[in-house]
Amino acid sequence: MSVDSATVRKIASLARIAVSDAEAEALAPELSKILGLVEQLSEVDTTGIAPLAAVVPNHLRLRDDVVTDGDIRDKILKNAPQAEHGFFAVPKVIE
């Protein structure tokens, strides 16, 4: 599968990474090459094989319903590029 620069722009937009037209142009053959590598997988017969669900046999443990965390607003906001009045601030969103 080879991807063109329009596809690259679409993927980049889904991934929220701004790309210039020149970057999209340059990325297209790179990504195509990687996709070429991974597409070898299509030749493997996987009939009747279940996708791997757990890397090492293990059970999902469940946690008790107890409040053990929170009340750490200073820590939560400490690294924020912009925090005001106890909130994170972002450019205005219009819904």
Binding site: V67, G70, R73
Partner: peptide, 27 residues
């Protein structure tokens, strides 16, 4: 209805101060 959140130990209480019921996981 639960005391703590689905995947963290922060409280589910309604009406608290902003970002008070937040764990490092939630953020």
């Amino acid at each position: 209805t639960s005391n703590a959140k689905l995947f963290s130990g922060a409280s589910t209480r309604f009406g608290n101060e902003p970002n008070a019921n937040v764990s490092l996981v939630d953020a």
